[in-house]
Design a protein around this nucleic acid. Structure first.
Lengths: 213, 213
DNA sequence: CAGAAATTCCCCTGCGCGGGGGATGTCCGC
DNA sequence: GCGGACATCCCCCGCGCAGGGGAATTTCTG
């Protein structure tokens, strides 16, 4: 049987080299390439001919790991995506799976779990580590009950804009914005707009870089 | 010459295993232990007899990497600490160095840079990657012009507490808290208390876990 | 078509908070 | 001792915003 061709997408060079060293110590796995960003991954996709892409969801640059997973999934059967991420939050797990990831492993999982996930992905089988599996159960689709307009408002609120500023940005009345904000706070179970930024951060709606400066 | 005894402290098991695999491929380095938290590291400190501790600054649990570095440094000459962290922000670099770290490497640096940092630390020499060196220059000591009391207030504001709640927590009047908050906002160049949480997060004063839930 | 959902706008109330003053007492260092 | 930093508390003003109503419009869906 041919070896599983794995490509690594992670912005941390040290982590890539480390994971490569780990995975290549197994005879049935071959690491065929690395990329530090989603954009770089798509450039190198052709020569890789990878069976499995090990994708960090927290990526710098324009495209995050979820979007990249989505696009890879739309390309067809291969490569299959295994999400590898530091932080575990229920929403991100389900988001990754919705985007077409076939596996999900935390960076603090046992390395053997990662190995198993890669092998499962090579066989086309779903694999979630225990935390991810639990997350799927826990996740009540947080944020998904928001309407499109409410999501827009959410992002602007998270950026620290006032109702008036949001109203101008969306060219609607500030009373309208107030309605949306109230709806968002209610659906998210928050009581102050200041918490919205942290909520958005924790649930992967925005990155820290987008919020500060 | 004896091999450099290195211990790894990082909450991501996959990363630990990977870095271990990478470092152990060099004959002059021996990885003598691993820990997933600062607390675990101090428990295992004795048997390790490590020359160098490779420390992730972003650690779960009660003690973060900065505090752990500080305590290790107070123990004496060894082990020396090399900080290894994902995010680069000027304040965190200088905080780590003030705490006694002898090296600083980003996870997205070339693995060879990490190798060089470990070897330099083994010789007792300072080593910063290019980004860290730049950070030292850039850092104007952000947040250091705050008084102790203002720092206390800062942390509570970041946690989303109201002036009244903070006043109760510190057993002072709410007018007093208002004065401190105003001072903090002024010194930090912010205009809304909601931005304080993000500022604190970005500059390493608190972790995301401490802020949400 | 009928109903639901989404979006828009409006009224009112009360509190939190940012910005502007200032005052008092303590402690430390020059 | 005298200045300066720090911490504490006080007053005023005005805006922003959460929470409570309601209502009109369009758009989607059954």
């Amino acid at each position: 049987m041919d070896r599983i061709r794995v490509a690594l997408v992670d912005d941390h060079h040290v982590v890539r080299r480390g994971v490569r060293a780990f995975l290549e110590s197994f005879a049935d796995i071959s690491v065929v390439g690395e990329a530090a960003s989603a954009e770089e991954a798509f450039e190198k996709l052709e020569p890789w001919q990878a069976d499995v892409v090990l994708m960090d969801l927290l990526l710098p640059g324009g495209m995050d790991g979820i979007s990249a997973t989505q696009r890879l999934h739309e390309l067809g059967e291969k490569p299959r995506v295994v999400a590898l991420t530091a932080y575990m939050d229920d929403a991100r797990v389900t988001a990754a799976l919705r985007a077409g990831a076939i596996g999900y492993v935390r960076k603090d999982a046992l390395p053997e779990v990662l190995l198993e996930a890669v092998r499962a992905a090579g066989r086309g089988q779903l694999f979630l580590d225990s935390f991810a599996a639990e997350a799927v159960l826990n996740d009540s689709g947080v944020g998904n009950e928001l309407t499109p307009r409410e999501r827009e408002v959410l992002l602007l609120v998270a950026r620290g804009m006032s109702n008036r500023q949001i109203a101008d940005a969306l060219t609607v009345g500030d009373e309208t914005v107030k309605s949306h904000v109230t709806a968002v706070l209610g659906k998210l179970g928050l009581s102050q707009r200041g918490q919205v930024a942290l909520w958005a951060l924790k649930h992967g709606w925005v990155g820290l870089d987008e919020l500060v400066e």
